[in-house]
Design a protein around this nucleic acid. Sequence first.
DNA 1: AGCTTTCTAGCACGATCGTTCGATTACCGA
DNA 2: TCGGTAATCGAACGATCGTGCTAGAAAGCT
Lengths: 221, 221
Amino acid sequence: MGKGELTRQAILDRAVQIASRVGLGGLTIGSLAAEAGMSKSGLFAHFRSKEALQIHVLDHARERFVERVLRPALAAPRGVPRLRKLFECWVGSSGDANGCLFVAAAVEFDDQEGPVHDRLVAHHRDWIESLAQMCRTGIAEGHFRDDVDPEQFAQDFYGLMLGYYHFHRLLRDPQARKRTERAFEALLDRARVPHLDVSSARCAQPRDSVTASGAALLKPQ
Amino acid sequence: MGKGELTRQAILDRAVQIASRVGLGGLTIGSLAAEAGMSKSGLFAHFRSKEALQIHVLDHARERFVERVLRPALAAPRGVPRLRKLFECWVGSSGDANGCLFVAAAVEFDDQEGPVHDRLVAHHRDWIESLAQMCRTGIAEGHFRDDVDPEQFAQDFYGLMLGYYHFHRLLRDPQARKRTERAFEALLDRARVPHLDVSSARCAQPRDSVTASGAALLKPQ
DNA sequence: AGCTTTCTAGCACGATCGTTCGATTACCGA
DNA sequence: TCGGTAATCGAACGATCGTGCTAGAAAGCT
């Protein structure tokens, strides 16, 4: 990795942090340059436009987020344990800027069409699909009923996390996390096979880690 | 109402619409003036600063939102019917800019301290408290179990709606609304009395009849 | 009607926005 | 070590940002 790519990564790290606070639109080249300790034009040369910068920031945040949340989950056994690990990493990374940026950008660009919007939607679709796929795996493993709707599960899951971000970050509610954990357990319960001792299902054999779930997000580059 | 207050309201109506698209920070005095058909300085004179404008926009959106969502709900019978009416109005006003602005502003100002942030938090606290209070009323009316946690209910409710906004507005998912309705019914079910053998009841019921199940519990009016 | 208060437009300001360009420095394979 | 490529900088561009100031138009009151 050349020097250019190196500082580029450093810039993007900073950019994600800033953008998670002020949004992708509020992210300014001048302030980013100052934060990165380089000139405005020097920084600008790395990305040919602000729009390109925004997309790169989005991609960067996605990579980091996948690495910190999805990847560890895929190392866990399929089904409920994997979902639980995902949840744990997701909630745990709430101080991390990468996840927050996605939520912020989602609200900011929800009806501002353009390349940034399209890229953002694509990433979110991938993420939702990963959630749904994990639910399907849970069904296949016998942890969930087979009439559970994976898309419903994914939306409920995501909504639950959005609620967490909201209560945790805006309202600074110290109980937000505990409630989110309860909501997550309730979500699992709703999908779970009735009259079954969960602990036995949870200790299912750890099949090989990387499966279809999240494959869309894990493709290189 | 004098002419000044009249154009002020017109300005704020426009401002809420614009801010729901580009955020409170992205809301610009110049573009707002152009949209309102008046000069930049003429508009500016109504609010002594941009920050004051943002707060007024926030208050305006809140008033409208309460009028369109909370007020109709309070006209419904206490407990579950009221909650159902609230949900209905809330979901129904998703095209309305007033609700969206709050979600947008919440993400935008979640760690930007200042007067706007404080006002926003206050409004959100009020809203959440309204949700929790409705839950308490549901308990008092005997619709919900008395060990239901109202704050948990409020967070779950809000999260569910955030999920709706997300899937509906960003992802343009045509099924978002139906899933949100299912999630809402599941939320009611979880809080509902009696708490008998949920698993069998849950599995036996086809999805369509879930909606009707709660309404049968209490007679209208 | 006239008079006073309120509202609005025009102009200008410093700052910062994204962006371009040419010069200069740093890096790296030969 | 040298020469060429890549990285960075400084200065400047037009546009737009939020914000004052002042003069005039409109509205409201008696």
